[in-house]
Nucleic acid binder design. Sequence first.
DNA 1: GCGACAG
DNA 2: ATCTTGTCGC
Length: 230
Amino acid sequence: MDISRTDLLRPATLRDATAIQRRIADLVDPRDSAAAPSRAAGLDVSANIRAADAVIHAAAVVLDWPSLALAATGGASEPAPFPYVPGYLGFREAPALAAAIASLPAEVRPDLLFVDGQGWAHPRRCGIACQIGVALDLPAIGVAKSILVGEIAGTLGPAPGDAARLVWKGETVAVALRTRARANPLFISVGHRVSLDGAVAHVRAALRGYRLPEPTRLAHLAANVRRRGG
DNA sequence: GCGACAG
DNA sequence: ATCTTGTCGC
């Protein structure tokens, strides 16, 4: 619906990008949305490692919530507008992801996003999940596979479901969640319009025996299919 | 200045 | 992110 503030995703320079991130960080709402989600989308991209023909292939896989039944798959492919720079991932991937969501029929638009990357657990509290959430005004969760900033407080248990805080500069910025035995944890953080506890609860509810929650896992597969063909 | 560094 | 079959371990 309101694909309104996508201007927030297209800065001209890295200087502008930093300023935009500070603005977005102020707009992030770390509280749970009033309504329970009815559809969740997993967002991910696939790109050829070669920088020359850098094209971002984005996929948005929509699942009914909480059944996780497949509802729709959307996609978009765009030239990479930005190189990958740690801390600025959103400016590289978010425009294509927003386009992938826009490609979905209105009846199956998601009201909860699982984004591949950090949310709040970012140097300016503005990871890609915050950028997408604010730009599209949708609840968004950051689901990262590794740490950008911070460190795990104490020890993270080995059993699926075990969790520990990720702390940066004295503040809890994410939850390290072991989603599967003997697999590295996921780092869940606030993107927009969800609380940290709510975000973790939603991820737990979307696990089906794999390391990644279903929306993210299926989006990863869909993005690869889109890039390679299938 | 040096090391770290989501995807 | 991506290149890739089998293989070791729980």
